[in-house]
Design a protein around this nucleic acid. Structure first.
Lengths: 345, 345
DNA sequence: CTTTGTATTGAAATGCATTTCATAAAAACC
DNA sequence: GGTTTTTATGAAATGCATTTCAATACAAAG
C-alpha cells in the first residue's frame, strides 16, 4: 500500500511541486494548469479557482527555464552599457542612469527581464551566441561610442537591436538619439549672440554623437567668418583627467578661448574648475555651454547653460522600437529634439 | 530514399542545430558533446577537437534554458535598485552607479548574469516567486531605504541575499555598508574644529543609513555642550525639492546654521545653491560636509568637504558575500571605513 | 596470461512546461 | 429528436542539455 506513487499530500514534500503535482492534486490535467497559470480563457471559472487554490497552497512556482525552453524565447532584453567609460570617478553621468531607469520601467511594464551588460558582448560572436542560445531576445545598446563597426555587423546578422546614440540614416541599425547637431548649433548660436569669437570644443570626436555636436557648432560658426574653433580632444572620461587636460590647455594656448562647448555637464564642471584656477572665469571671460542638463548643473556656481535632452521619453522609445524589431519589422530611427537651457554661463 | 530522417549535412538546415545534431555529425554521443562544451577533462583530446570543429561549423549554440532547467540554477543574480528614488532629476547619485558597475564586473568574472531590478520585488511573494521559479539564484539589494521590514522577511525565507546599506547586527540578513556612524562623527568633529555650534542635519532619518549618520553627528556634538543640532528632514530626493526645502528653511529659521551636514554631495550642492541665494555663504558663514565624494564635489565652487565611501571594493565585496550565501553559509555583515575628505567648505 | 585499474564513451533517465490534436460534454439550432 | 457548434479538458509530442550508471577498451601490474 505504502508502495504506491506519492499521490497524497499527507507527506510534507521534500522536493518543489511541479505542474504535474498541482494537476494531480487539483484533479485536472497538466495542460489545464498551464492554461490557468497563463491566463488562458479556455478554462471554466471553477476549474480556474480550484487550480489556483491548489497552486497557492502547495507553494507552487513554475520553473521559468522549462517555460522559456518550451516557448523558445527568453523574455529578456540585454542592455549593453560601457561601464568602463562611466566608472572610475568618471562621467557617471546621471544622464545614462536616467536612461537606464526609463528602459527598466518600460521593460517591466511588458514583463521582460533586463539583463544588464552581459559579458562577452565586445565581439560579434558574443552577440550571436547570446542571441542564439536564447539568452536574450534583443539588445539595447547605450551609446555606440567607438564600437560602431561592431554594431553594424550585429545588425546585419538580423539580431533585434536598437541603439541610443547618433542617428545616421546610412546605418544598418535602428538608432534613437538626440539631435546632436542641433545641440551644437544651439550652443554656437548662443556664442554668436554673446559675440564670442574664439571657441573651444571639448570632447572626443571619435564618438559619433559628439562629432555631430561639433559639426553643429561648426555650422553655426559659419555664420560669422571671424569665428575660430579649437578642439580639446578628451581621451579619458575620468573627471580629473578632463580637469587636468583643460588646465594644461589653458596654460599652453596662444589665445584664451572666450567660449567653451563641453560634451557633458560633468565635463563642463571640470573645465570651469580648471580654468578658474588660472583666473579665467565664466561668464566674465568666456561663455560656456554643457550638455545633458543634469540636476547639479542648475545649482553649480555659476549655474551652467546647457543642452537638455529628452531623457524622459528616451527609454520608453528605445523599448518601443525594440518591440517592433522583435515583431519582425524594421523600426525607423528617431531623433529627439534638444533644447538650450540658458543659465549664468 | 529522401524519406530518411534528416541525417546528412547536405541540406541547409532550417532549424537551429541541437546538441544531438552536433553529436551525430561528430559521430559521438550527446553526453560527450556536453562534456566537451563544459570543459570536462573526461574526453580525449582529439574527440574534443572534432566536436568543437563540428560545433563551430554548424554554428551551434547551446540552449541556455535547457541547460538551466537541467542544472537547476539560473546562473543569474537579481540586483534590486529603487530607481524611483534615483530618478526624476533626482539623486541619480553617481555613487549608486559605481556600486552597480562594481557588482556587474564581479558577476561577470564569475560568469553570472545580472538581472536588473526585476519587477514584483516590492512584496515578499515577489521575492519568493522569483527565487523559487529559479529566475535568480540570489539577490543583491542596493539601499534598504524604507523597506527594511520586507527584507527581514525575505531573509527569514532563507533566500540568498545581501544588502548594501546600514549594517545592523540584529538584522536577519547580511549587510555590507559604510560605517555611517563614523561618517557622522567625522563631520561633527570637523564642525567642532571650526568652532561651529548651530548644526543642521539635512536628510531623512527614515533611511536607516542616514539615521546612523545623524547619530554619529550627535555623538560628536556631545563633546561640546553648546552645540545644538537642527534637522531638515528631506522628503523628496529630487534635487530641486531639496533646494526649495533648504531655501525655505533658511528663510524661516530663527538662527542661521553655521554648519551643515548633508546626506549626499548632490544634496550639499542643492543646499549651497539655496543658501547662497539668501547670502548665506560657505565656508564664510557655515561649514559644510557632504557625503559620497562624487567627482564633481572636488570641482564645485567652493569645493565640497565630504565623506568618502569605498565604492571600489563595495561591489566586489557584496558579490563575494553573496557567493558565500549561495554556498549555504551565512556570511557576516561587513562595515567599510569612511574617510573625511577636506576641501574648501 | 589473468587481474586490476584507468581512460573514454554511450544509453537512458531526468529536469518541467506548452502546444497541437483529439475527444467528450454541453449548448444551440433546425 | 437529431445535428451542428461551442466549450472544456486531456494524451502525447516537443523543446534541449546534463547526469548517473554501465560498458568497453586498453594499459599496467602480478
Amino acid at each position: 500500500m505504502a508502495q504506491k506513487s506519492s499521490d497524497t499530500t499527507t507527506m510534507p514534500r521534500t522536493t518543489r511541486p511541479t505542474m504535474d503535482d498541482v494537476a494531480r492534486i487539483a484533479k485536472v490535467s497538466k495542460p489545464t494548469v498551464s492554461r490557468v497559470l497563463s491566463g488562458s480563457p479556455l478554462v471554466s471559472a471553477d476549474t480556474r479557482e480550484r487550480v489556483l487554490a491548489v497552486a497557492r497552497e502547495q507553494g507552487y512556482a513554475l520553473n521559468r527555464h522549462a517555460q522559456k525552453l518550451r516557448r523558445e524565447r527568453a523574455n529578456a532584453i540585454a542592455v549593453v552599457l560601457d561601464f568602463g567609460s562611466h566608472r572610475q570617478g568618471a562621467i557617471g553621468d546621471p544622464f545614462i542612469f536616467e536612461l537606464l531607469a526609463g528602459i527598466s520601467e518600460a521593460l517591466s511594464v511588458r514583463d521582460l527581464d533586463l539583463l544588464l551588460s552581459p559579458s562577452g558582448l565586445d565581439t560579434i560572436d558574443g552577440f550571436v551566441d547570446l542571441y542564439q542560445s536564447r539568452g536574450a531576445d534583443g539588445f539595447i545598446v547605450l551609446g555606440q561610442g567607438a564600437r560602431d563597426a561592431l554594431l553594424q555587423k550585429v545588425a546585419r546578422k538580423d539580431i533585434p537591436m536598437v541603439v541610443w546614440g547618433a542617428v545616421n540614416e546610412a546605418s544598418a541599425y535602428c538608432a534613437v538619439g538626440s539631435d546632436n547637431s542641433l545641440g551644437g548649433r544651439l550652443a554656437g548660436e548662443r556664442f554668436l549672440l554673446h559675440d564670442r569669437r574664439r571657441w573651444l570644443f571639448v570632447g572626443s570626436r571619435q564618438h559619433e554623437e559628439i562629432r555631430l555636436r561639433f559639426e553643429g557648432l561648426q555650422e553655426a560658426a559659419r555664420k560669422n567668418s571671424d569665428v575660430e574653433i579649437d578642439v580639446l580632444s578628451i581621451e579619458s572620461m575620468a573627471f580629473s583627467a578632463i580637469h587636468d587636460q583643460a588646465n594644461a590647455y589653458l596654460k599652453t594656448c596662444t589665445v584664451r578661448p572666450d567660449a567653451v562647448f563641453a560634451f557633458s555637464d560633468t565635463a563642463a564642471m571640470a573645465v570651469i574648475g580648471a580654468f578658474s584656477k588660472e583666473g579665467h572665469l565664466t561668464p566674465r571671460d568666456y561663455s560656456l555651454v554643457g550638455y545633458n542638463d543634469i540636476p547639479p548643473a542648475a545649482h553649480f556656481t555659476p549655474s551652467i547653460t546647457t543642452i537638455a535632452q529628452q531623457t524622459g521619453v528616451a527609454g520608453a522609445l528605445l523599448v518601443e522600437k525594440l518591440m517592433q524589431a522583435l515583431d519582425g519589422s524594421r523600426p525607423r530611427s528617431a531623433m529627439l529634439p534638444t533644447q538650450l537651457v540658458t543659465r549664468q554661463t
